[in-house]
Design a protein around this nucleic acid. Structure first.
Lengths: 204, 204
DNA sequence: AGCACCTTAACGAACGTTAAGTAAGATGAT
DNA sequence: ATCATCTTACTTAACGTTCGTTAAGGTGCT
């Protein structure tokens, strides 16, 4: 009853997106062939063209699929109750946890920032990041009235994302410990940095 | 005396690296063909194999070439005179300027962080980043005794790099202005953030 | 002569994509 | 209920192109 399949109602198109996403995340657009995707799905290469007109369209659909719902889940992390400090803490811990749990999303995001043409970046910005960014910027504005809110909002996201981006190479840098990949540790560090614990407090 | 060229000493091998680097930076390893490189250099595709045994070796040589001397120039930005605050300011302004002036290096760095296998990342870490990272970590330690220096050093680099990484998409995010791509503005923002101007000062 | 450096031509493999055909279920007239 | 017909979802085989790479040979300096 749950899954009748009368006709013209296959979920293969969705399966293709789900199976191709980790491939694109790992190897990038040029690094994944249509045959790779077909093999991952378990169908012939030609069958892909029954669902998507070409590789480019499949890729764009996969990206849209990957980024869908991310906007709201990022934004909902902020809420609008409590003091700015509380909201900052809530956002940083939640965003850090989300990024930690979705390495494919992170990789695709970085790839789009590197390779995305104007059209794709505009789509990504307007459909995914504008709304959460607005909320973060608003928070930034409340926290530091004299500081450029746009720059500060970018800094918040960057602080978190860069720790994950450097996860692989930090194993070869001095002082790199396993705990530095713990979302809770990262979040705590970012919070204390953003609340001014570095330059002002803890004088010896 | 400086540049004799007796025999078996063409600079074509160097030209190949210099011409292929922007291609790899823009399109990644899989996105650049040997024929693309050959055309950029102005020789036949087969001639590349006179200087490098295969595409992989050419790529690794190009990366080594791109990252050579970066280590010392980053590190020398710190120096070891003056107060920690002065050294921080010197490092941030200098590092920001260096990154602003070398988009290819930035792109290659991000690509290696995304795609680099264990061996390449280890090479990159040990030959390029270990020494400057040690110096930055040392600075971090002096600035915030109670904070994890490894995390703080990563944060310093990430704050700067992420502003450049998001340069293209910020045009579509609210509050994005041309001045936010000015190295001096970015550096000033990062410095004020790291010296604790956010959470502590400027209460209304 | 011999080596360094380059060419054109070509190899087989893999690429994105299309053509042609098949199996299975839905549809509609009888 | 049956049969022809249509659509959906796929298959195998092949198309022309481009890929990394090699073979064979030419030119010019030492």
């Amino acid at each position: 009853m749950a899954d009748k399949r009368p006709a013209g109602n296959s979920d293969t198109a969705q399966v293709i997106l789900n199976k191709s996403l980790p491939l694109f995340a790992r190897s990038g657009y040029a690094g994944v062939s249509m045959r790779d995707i077909a093999k991952a799905v378990g169908i012939s290469g030609a069958a892909l063209y029954h669902h998507y007109p070409d590789k480019q369209s499949l890729y764009v659909a996969a990206m849209a699929h990957a980024f869908a719902d991310k906007a709201s889940s990022i934004q909902s992390a902020l809420g609008n109750t409590g003091s700015p400090e509380q909201r900052l803490e809530r956002f940083v811990t939640s965003f850090t946890k989300q990024m930690a749990s979705d390495p494919d999303f992170r990789a695709l995001l970085h790839r789009e920032l590197l390779d995305g043409d104007e059209k794709r970046l505009k789509l990504l910005a307007e459909n995914v990041f504008i709304e959460p960014f607005k909320a973060i910027k608003q928070l930034a504005q409340e926290m530091a009235l004299d500081c450029d809110a746009h720059l500060l909002a970018i800094s918040m996201a960057g602080l978190i994302l860069f720790h994950f981006e450097t996860q692989a190479i930090r194993r070869y840098l001095p002082g790199g410990l396993k705990k530095h990949n713990d979302p809770k540790v990262i979040a705590q560090h970012v919070i204390s940095l953003l609340t001014g614990a570095i330059g002002s407090g803890s004088r010896q």
